[in-house]
Amino acid sequence: MEGMTGTLNLVGYGLSAIGPAIATGMIFAAYINGVARQPEARSVLQPIAFLGFALAEALALFGLVLAFVL
């Protein structure tokens, strides 16, 4: 396809966003599962789920910023 312009960085970012997306889904699937089975475990599970979400989200945002910076 000649005559197409654009930057491959954004394609790379699209690919790199797949990982954090799946990770976030799995974290909350496990969290919901755990709370549904044992509602009193919520206060124990909540910080763990949020920190896992923060780590996964950090990678996604890092990819977003690097796609524009590099």
């Binding site: 909540q46 910080p47 763990i48 910076v69």
Partner: peptide, 28 residues
């Protein structure tokens, strides 16, 4: 871009620390 990368890493680290302070420190 050297300091941009350093700044990004620093910002990510301190933001994660802030998240831990606010949401992970005490369970619940």
């Amino acid at each position: 871009r050297v300091f941009t990368l350093v700044g990004l890493l620093l910002g990510m680290g301190s933001a994660l620390y802030l998240v831990w302070l606010r949401f992970g420190r005490h369970s619940g």
